[in-house]
Design a protein around this nucleic acid. Sequence first.
DNA 1: CGACTGACACTAT
DNA 2: TATAGTGCCAGTC
Length: 119
Amino acid sequence: MSISENFFERVYNVVRKIPYGKVTSYGEIAKFLGAVRSARMVGWAMNAAHNDDTIPAHRVVNKQGLLTGKHHFDGTNLMQQLLESEGIIIKNNKIINFNEVFWIPKKKSPINNPYNENI
DNA sequence: CGACTGACACTAT
DNA sequence: TATAGTGCCAGTC
């Protein structure tokens, strides 16, 4: 605890900022934190975040839109169901309309859909 | 203190 | 285009 706590805190802060019906990737979060290579750490932070209800970890997926962390949720399809309930379409643990629901952590306004060509 | 692990991402084959 | 291997940072054993 101490410095690392800050790191985790940042990750949580970003994840909490994810709007309803939107998702983001570990890499983008890591990039937002200033460490693209620490994408794995984001996932690790999520692991610890699993203990925190205020963190919508189900809105965090890998860059392929694949629900890699769904296995870490209680139910088998809990993560998928949560996302689907938010209007996100998932097929075979993969987000179909990924580019539509993809959201990038930004300090600016919440915006809506400026990132279409990014992926 | 050293080694292994991990909810990823990128590059190369 | 798909699969395999490597790099990365932080935490835990």
